[in-house]
Amino acid sequence: MLTIDRPTYDAIVAHARRDHPDEACGVVAGPVGADRPVRFIPMLNAARSPTFYEFDSTDLLRLYREMDDRDEEPAVIYHSHTATEAYPSRTDIAYAGEPGAHYVLVSTRDPVDIEFRSFRISDGAVTEEPVTVIDTAG
């Protein structure tokens, strides 16, 4: 199960809406082993494409360095689909390189309703999991 706080959830959705019709992508980092997404890090989609996303390779190195220095790992890796459902594509599955991460897919195909779903992707196998959004006090 993915447990995520409301501000982070909203930030992912806002990023996906902002970059529509291109795919948006990013990470929510968390302390190693804690399974807790806390630090929202929107990334540039170097592909700038409605059908593909890729972290720029220099940004990727910087991101992993920084997470390493802070004892963090990618708790969530998110990206959007802008014309199709929020389900991992064959390409998503082929590339998935973080079996410990929650792969969040957001679909912006509908201008009003958002689809926000989370998956584990490991060795080519996709498992959907429930998403719990925690509303913070106030």
Binding site: M43, Y53, E54, L60, P88, Y95
Partner: peptide, 10 residues
């Protein structure tokens, strides 16, 4: 030398 998984997809 650093090896990282590309973060990419469709």
């Amino acid at each position: 030398v650093t090896i990282l998984p590309a973060v990419a997809g469709g």
